[in-house]
Design a protein around this nucleic acid. Sequence first.
DNA 1: ATCGCCTCCTGCGCGC
DNA 2: TGCGCGCAGGAGGCGA
Length: 271
Amino acid sequence: MPELPEVETTKRGIESHVVGKKIAQVIIRESRFRWPISRGFKQKVDGHIIRSIARRAKYILFELDHGYFMIHLGMSGSLRIVESKTILKKHDHVDFQLPTGKCLRFNDPRRFGSVLWLGKHPMKHALLNKLGPEPFAKEFSAEYLFLRARKRKVAIKNFIMDNHIVVGAGNIYANEALFISGIRPTRPAGKVTKTECERLVAAIIAVLKASIEMGGTTLKDFVGGDGKPGYFQQTLRVYDREQQPCKKCGTLIKALRIGQRSTYYCPNCQK
DNA sequence: ATCGCCTCCTGCGCGC
DNA sequence: TGCGCGCAGGAGGCGA
């Protein structure tokens, strides 16, 4: 399940292969995604050079001379550079063929992903213009989080997973960050103190950074299938550890659902 | 404005 | 071994 670290790793991995290269042609074998690939998409990108790529939240943006398009991996998508003649696997839905004999191949079993043309002003697009700060940006501070949380009643876990507040804290990382900062996931966001916000912000940043640093390994594994992050999984403190001893105090980890999402916490360490 | 639920889709793991 | 079922998950959209 690509979370922000996997998306960042993917972006870094494909960058040198695609920037400055022309899209010889795009081959769309399946266009039914979260949003269908628009009819004019092929005509818009065929023959154009990719000037740069960037990541915003979990979106990967591709800059062409006359506009941008973006790809979201959804929860089962992967984007890899392969030799053009590489035999197609199940769910290899879109190919961006490059003049180098390679191609950028988008595979997405569950089709929660998307490939969207954005036009000349990508940040004005409805999907991007309301996003909260990147977790590594200076705007994402304890001060900011605390202020945004004023009077909010939602569980703090839902709150930090809300892309309008901060992007990139997916379910796994939200669970982990709350454990690290000693905050119970069910606490109303508005009841989390300033001091706790400081710990939480630091924890979100730390857990995402650590995961990105393991990116190579994680990527290798997550690209192979749609399984959980490989190496990083060994470092998980609470996620998917129901009834297993807390790594800090030995208390058994509890599981519950918050907003339809699996939630794990240590009833002793997290207040 | 805020909140909580629903939805998209496929693969997997479980129980029988 | 095979079958069917339920679950998982990112995130927009909607109704209350």
